[in-house]
């Protein structure tokens, strides 16, 4: 069943993001070493790899969140729909509206649940009327599997939710701006199996329209939701290919040891 989907996808292989020779330095720490990767449209791509290998760092390059870290320096090209996002003419704000992000640690605004979700649509002018906005908020919360828990407490602070609920709120917030690419940094690390399943369902649904990149430490999750998998190790992209192939028949011995649990 899964394999069939891979072949289906392989036909419409249009590149959404193309990274060429990306290097990232934190001061003198070389965190990403010459990474080349093509991320496909309408595909879920999973980044796996041991802790500290640079998955988050590379993810943050894609929406230029590394700009906010003074010591971070990014070299190489990352093209979004053929346009260099590190071009001097690109406004990172505009880019981030297209490339949404869910962070590793849940970080809701200290505002109401409603305002958390409505913030993005508001600043981007996505809703004309209050009814439009209400609809976006409801739809986003439903997609993030939070609606049932949150619908009666929309005016209560988002920071008052449990950790897992906060993470889903952050997902709803990212989805609400309808990005073209959604970057998710371990979105399920604080979730229980039921919420995880719901988020995975959401990811699968998002794939119809967006390109999703997900960092995960769970091999099973990567296998379940992604069509393509990239394995990072010590800042290098060791192997990148179709998920089925990476998990069943890895080319690099390091990939194999990681998947079978020997590096980690």
């Amino acid at each position: 069943m899964n394999d069939m989907r891979f072949t289906e996808r392989a036909v419409v292989e249009d590149k959404k993001i193309a990274a060429k020779g990306v290097q990232v330095y934190y001061g003198s720490n070389h965190a990403i070493k010459d990474v080349n990767v093509d991320i496909l449209d309408k595909t879920v791509t999973a980044f796996i790899g041991p802790s500290g290998c640079g998955k988050s760092t590379f993810l943050r390059c894609i929406n230029r969140m590394n700009d906010t870290i003074d010591i971070a320096r990014v070299e190489g090209d990352i093209l979004l729909d053929g346009e260099d996002i590190y071009d001097a003419k690109v406004d990172p704000v505009q880019l981030r509206a297209k490339v949404g992000m869910v962070f590793q640690k849940p970080n809701p605004f200290p505002k109401s649940i409603y305002d958390n979700v409505a913030y993005g649509p508001r600043i981007h002018g996505l809703a004309r009327t209050k009814a439009d906005l209400d609809e976006i908020v409801e739809k986003s919360l439903r997609r993030a599997a939070l609606w049932d828990e949150a619908k009666d407490r929309l005016e209560q602070p988002g920071t008052g939710l449990s950790g897992g609920q906060q993470q889903r709120l952050c997902i709803a917030r990212a989805v609400a701006t309808s990005p073209e690419v959604l970057l998710m940094d371990e979105p399920c690390s604080a979730l229980d199996p039921i919420a995880t399943a719901q988020v995975e369902e959401l990811i699968d649904e998002l794939r119809e329209r967006f390109s999703v990149v997900i960092v995960t430490h769970s091999m099973q999750q990567a296998a379940r939701v992604s069509q393509r998998t990239a394995f990072f190790h010590l800042g290098e992209l060791v192997e990148y290919g179709e998920t089925g192939q990476i998990f069943t028949n890895p080319e690099d011995p390091r990939t194999e040891s990681y998947i079978t649990g020997r590096i980690g």
Binding site: V93, R96, G100, F103, N107, Y119, A176, T177
Partner: peptide, 15 residues
């Protein structure tokens, strides 16, 4: 907390 700034920038708010 810096995560609040990240959150705002992440949904496409300007500085």
């Amino acid at each position: 907390p810096p995560s609040i700034r990240d959150a705002a920038l992440g949904v496409g708010a300007s500085k």
